[in-house]
Design a protein around this nucleic acid. Structure first.
Lengths: 125, 125
DNA sequence: GGAATATTTGCAAACTTGCGCAAGTTTGCT
DNA sequence: AGCAAACTTGCGCAAGTTTGCAAATATTCC
């Protein structure tokens, strides 16, 4: 085994790093929050906390907290209207985060393995 | 306020659901595990637990556990070789999961908002 | 002002997670 | 067989999460 593996310090890692956001994935890592996102995605227009409470079997106070977490992660927008808080999915932000990471990863693989899949090819053993 | 919001039961949700995997995002929701993934992505070839231990300041027993979590989520492959366990990123699986969710989300938005951005348009308030 | 509605927040209970250490397992080497 | 190397797993601890209930905080409507 090579005693000094070549860890590329270059473009590869630099491009990937900004997409490695634990809080974002943590926000996505809970069933109730995923249900909320699905509901937000599947319903036209913005929805209130009480409306959203019906989608996962969680008390509305819990839903309020979940929505805050999603909002803090930049995944949903709030608009206060009277005594309601209307939430809507920021589809673009989420899609960008996910695709950005996918793209960066693949670029990384491509760059570290070399174009001809030589020597230490990472792709499909 | 409409008392009965139209929650689309159709293609939209059905296409999104398979990508809503909490364990997957949970696996991605930890800094040490993200560091491991970055390392795996930036280094050609497979790497052993001990090698990987140097990338996040975590005891190798912890790294072993992290790798198991990533593996269970389908993000990395293991190959046992003698007394070593060689891990490599399953870049395709990860990229597919991320892009799949991004695509499904956007399809969802497009379908639930109608093509002309009528009435309850979800896109950019 | 007072009642009703909508949401947030404090609190406590149950549970999960991340961590290091030590012990166990498997494999290779002499 | 004996020993070392590489990894996994059980244990305990500290810290963090999720959840419901109840109280606090707006906001609207008489």
């Amino acid at each position: 085994m090579n005693d000094a593996k070549t860890v590329l310090p270059d473009a590869c890692t630099d491009a990937l790093t900004p997409f490695l956001r634990p809080e974002l994935f943590r926000a996505l890592g809970d069933p109730s929050r995923l249900a909320l996102l699905a509901r937000l995605a599947a319903t036209p227009g913005a929805q209130s906390v009480t409306e959203l409470s019906s989608c996962c079997g969680v008390h509305f106070s819990g839903v309020s907290r979940h929505l805050k977490i999603l909002h803090d992660a930049g995944l949903i927008d709030v608009e206060r209207q009277g005594r309601e808080a209307l939430y809507r999915l920021d589809c673009g932000a989420l899609a960008l985060a996910l695709r950005g990471m996918a793209d960066a990863l693949e670029a990384c693989q491509a760059s570290c393995c070399g174009p001809r899949g030589a020597e230490g090819d990472c792709r499909r053993a």
